[in-house]
Computed example of a mutant assay.
Amino acid sequence: MAELTAEEKKWVKQMNALLKKCPSKRIGFYTIGDNDIGLYDIDHQDAIDAADRDLVRGLNYTGHGFAETIVFPGPVNGVCG
C-alpha cells in the first residue's frame, strides 16, 4: 500500500477533524467524479428518490441540492463499493 508523507498525513487528520465539526445532520454528499463534492438536503431523500432513482437527476427535479460545494485539490473518483 502507498504511504503518505508526514505532511500529507497531518493534512488528512486536520481535514477529518474539520469535517467532524459539521453543524448539521441533514447534509448529504455526492460526487460525479470531478474535484467537487456536491451537497444536498437528506431530509428530503424520499422525495428525491421518488423523483428519480439517479441522485443527480432527482436533485435537479426537486431542487433539494445546495449551491455550495466542497472542492478538493484533485479528482474525487465516484466508485461503487
Results as ranks from 00 to 15, higher is better:
M1I: 11
A2M: 08
A2R: 07
E3S: 09
E3F: 07
E3H: 06
E3Q: 10
L4K: 07
L4P: 03
T5N: 04
T5M: 04
T5V: 05
A6P: 05
A6L: 09
A6N: 07
E7S: 05
E8A: 11
K10Q: 09
K10W: 03
K10E: 11
W11M: 12
W11R: 11
M15T: 04
M15E: 04
M15K: 08
N16V: 08
N16L: 15
A17W: 03
L19S: 12
K21L: 13
K21Y: 04
K21G: 05
K21P: 02
K21H: 07
C22Q: 15
C22H: 13
C22Y: 14
C22S: 15
P23D: 08
P23W: 05
K25C: 06
R26H: 11
R26V: 09
R26C: 07
G28K: 00
F29I: 05
F29Y: 11
Y30P: 07
Y30H: 10
T31L: 01
I32R: 15
I32P: 02
I32G: 09
I32F: 06
G33K: 02
G33N: 01
G33M: 02
D34H: 14
N35F: 02
N35Q: 08
D36V: 03
D36Q: 08
D36R: 07
I37D: 01
I37P: 00
G38P: 01
G38E: 03
G38Q: 03
G38A: 04
L39F: 06
D41M: 00
D41W: 01
I42W: 08
I42R: 14
D43G: 14
D43Q: 13
H44N: 09
H44P: 01
H44M: 03
Q45E: 11
Q45M: 08
Q45H: 05
D46I: 11
D46A: 13
A47Q: 13
I48H: 02
I48M: 02
I48Q: 02
D49K: 12
A50T: 07
A51C: 02
A51H: 00
D52T: 01
D54S: 06
D54M: 04
V56T: 11
V56E: 13
V56A: 11
V56P: 03
V56H: 08
R57H: 07
R57E: 14
G58S: 05
L59W: 00
N60V: 13
N60I: 12
N60G: 14
N60T: 13
Y61I: 14
Y61P: 01
Y61F: 12
T62C: 01
H64V: 00
H64K: 04
H64S: 01
G65C: 01
G65L: 00
F66R: 02
F66Y: 15
F66P: 03
F66Q: 02
A67F: 13
A67C: 13
A67L: 14
E68D: 13
E68R: 07
T69D: 03
T69V: 12
I70V: 14
I70W: 10
V71H: 10
V71I: 09
F72L: 12
F72C: 09
F72R: 01
P73M: 02
P73G: 08
P73N: 06
P73A: 05
P73F: 03
P73Y: 04
G74V: 07
G74I: 06
G74D: 10
G74F: 12
G74S: 12
P75G: 06
P75N: 11
V76P: 02
N77R: 15
N77C: 12
N77T: 14
N77D: 14
V79R: 13
V79C: 08
C80R: 15
C80Y: 15
C80F: 15
C80S: 14
G81I: 15
